[in-house]
């Protein structure tokens, strides 16, 4: 197959995957919503940069969303109970084999649920879309290795993963440089390649929008899904306490200032909506990376119509 034919085939499968995701979520009673792609106040996270959008002189600057998370939680606070958004998000400076500054994100939220429900959602969703992409019998081949995608996927806590692969135990507030570097160089490359795997229970300081685990508040109820060495999805039992959320945002904003990054406007609308937000959980899944996995693509450029440098 020529590289052009392979690219065309991947775009066709991409369309089928997206169609299958919408059908799957709709069958589960989720409503697809479209919230604004431009916002006055992105979440003040220390390691994610939003693209500023000028509205001209004398009008406040806007930002392209880095995730629809804050918007979707505002809708949940207004009474929606199962919603999802599937569309583009934007992150400045992220470009690599698995990164595009503009990429496609699926985020779904469930009221009255926690991160365990999200893991079940992921297992069912991956099985469904793998079929839509042409894979049979709960098995996908990525880069020459077979991945068994039958449920349930194995689960590993961050503590277990670091003790096993990095030789130390991260506490509730680990040295972030060391934590991130070991995550990339020691944990991610050693995660099982023959099964998808959930990494869960991140250090409390590594999940600014997540609820802490009631039985062990040194960790957050955050989960990440990996398959074939690709980080596919990230989700939380959501933090619903506006005061604690405000404190965490202030901490993140402080780190931004310390790194010389611009301060975003304070997300007041979101924080006041949190007053009315019931228990809920939400997951964000990178569609481009899912298409990579299901079309055996070596890098993310192979699954988009045009890479950003040629758009």
């Amino acid at each position: 197959m020529s590289s052009k034919e392979a690219w065309q085939r991947r775009l066709v499968i991409r369309g089928k995957i997206i169609e299958a995701i919408r059908a799957f979520l709709s069958r589960q009673g989720f409503i697809e919503v479209q919230t604004p792609l431009m916002t006055h106040a992105p979440a003040p996270e220390s390691s994610i940069e939003a693209f500023p959008v000028s509205q001209g002189r004398d009008r406040p600057e806007l930002f392209l969303i880095t995730s629809p998370e804050l918007n979707l939680k505002r809708l949940l606070a207004e009474g929606f109970d199962r919603i999802f958004q599937l569309g583009p998000v934007f992150r400045k400076g992220e470009r690599g084999r698995h990164h595009l500054p503009e990429f496609t994100m699926l985020e779904w939220y469930r009221l009255g649920a926690d991160y365990y429900s999200l893991m079940s959602d992921c297992e069912a969703l991956i099985a469904t879309v793998a079929c839509a992409a042409g894979w049979k019998a709960h098995s996908v081949v990525y880069r020459g290795k077979e991945i068994d995608i039958s449920s349930p996927f194995p689960r590993l806590t961050i503590k277990e993963a670091f003790e096993k692969y990095a030789g130390w135990t991260p506490g509730p507030d680990p040295d972030l440089d060391r934590f991130n570097e070991d995550m990339i160089t020691k944990i991610e490359p050693n995660l099982s390649h023959d099964r998808p795997i959930f990494l869960m229970d991140y250090p409390a300081s590594c999940a600014s929008l997540s609820r802490l685990k009631p039985s062990d508040p040194t960790v957050a109820e955050r989960v990440e899904l990996y398959a074939g060495g690709i980080e596919l999805a990230n989700g939380f039992s959501e933090l619903t306490d506006p005061r604690e959320q405000g404190d965490r945002f202030r901490k993140e904003a402080q780190i931004r200032r310390a790194h010389g990054l611009n301060a975003y406007p304070w997300p007041e609308k979101f924080l006041s909506a949190l007053e009315r937000l019931p228990e809920c959980a939400g997951m964000a899944l990178g569609i481009d990376r899912l298409v990579m996995l299901l079309t055996d693509a070596p890098d993310i450029d192979k699954v988009v119509a045009f890479p950003p440098e040629e758009g």
Partner: peptide, 10 residues
Amino acid sequence: FSKPGKGQAL
């Protein structure tokens, strides 16, 4: 370029 979810880029 690598970047763990919610972490700093390397």
